[in-house]
Design a protein around this nucleic acid. Structure first.
Lengths: 142, 142
DNA sequence: ATATTTGCAAAGAGTTTGCATCATA
DNA sequence: TATGATGCAAACTCTTTGCAAATAT
């Protein structure tokens, strides 16, 4: 099932309306392969379409609840988003020098999460592991 | 070495001045055993002393660099802080229903971080692992 | 027909900045 | 005494809100 079909399903299940704006915003989000902020998304969409920021803010909340978009929050920086469908679970390495963000996967995180659920009553819905440091890339610069 | 001595050392090492305000702010931070935001800290200090918000904002940055304070950033919520000295490394469980934040420790996180440093050039300075879900406490409520 | 959603502009929250005054080194 | 720090208010950024008009069901 692709993102449009999933949105369809989610909207119907929650008695929300299938407005053209929702599908346009989702379509543009799924064209972006990096992390993005609202301003970037707004400019990107409004090169071709005309959709207000309020609508983008509203709908990104819907997409997060529908698990079509993930919200990222790194220290000291503004909120970022990424499409979440068809992406494998990953976490982030953030360079304190150049700000570049890299993704990494480590299956052992699942063990830690499973351990939490086993030893507490806490029922896990999501997690974020952010690792900060120095990327040591040749083109890393302040 | 306690927090005041460490601040002393850090200020001298970085040619920063030992103003009374810095020591007052640090003293009040170290009286707080929970996570706190700037507004709370400002009100707490200004019950007895008179220190501006600008000074608190400025100095908390100094304390973070001196590793005397840690900044926490959970999704959708404002920035929180916690004193970091004499606290063992820990991460956070955040309840999506009631918002309560619990701490947990899992030594296996260190293995994951060590693995990153072994397989990449990334040099780790800090990390944050936030786990979101439902705490299932009897007094958990929206 | 009616209740949601959109879009605009205004309001709000949290943080940063500019600048005159103060005080540490 | 010279430079860094403080404190106030204004500015700024990002997000939310109020409300009238549009529109999906």
């Amino acid at each position: 099932m692709n993102e449009t079909e999933l949105l369809n399903k989610y909207l119907k299940a929650n008695n929300l309306r299938q407005t053209p704006e929702r599908y346009i915003v989702l379509k543009y989000i799924y064209k972006i392969n990096n992390h993005f902020d609202i301003d970037y998304l707004y400019s990107f969409i409004n090169q071709k379409e005309k959709i207000s920021k309020a609508t983008i803010y509203n709908n990104i909340e819907v997409f997060i609840k529908a698990k079509l978009v993930k919200q990222l929050q790194f220290n000291n920086s503004k909120v970022l988003y990424e499409k979440s469908l068809q992406k494998i679970q990953h976490d982030h390495l953030i360079c304190n020098q150049c700000g570049k963000i890299n993704e990494f996967c480590d299956p052992r995180i699942q063990n830690i999460l499973a351990g939490i659920e086993k030893t507490t009553n806490f029922q896990i819905q999501s997690h974020s592991l952010n690792v900060f440091g120095n990327c040591n890339n040749k083109n890393c610069s302040k």
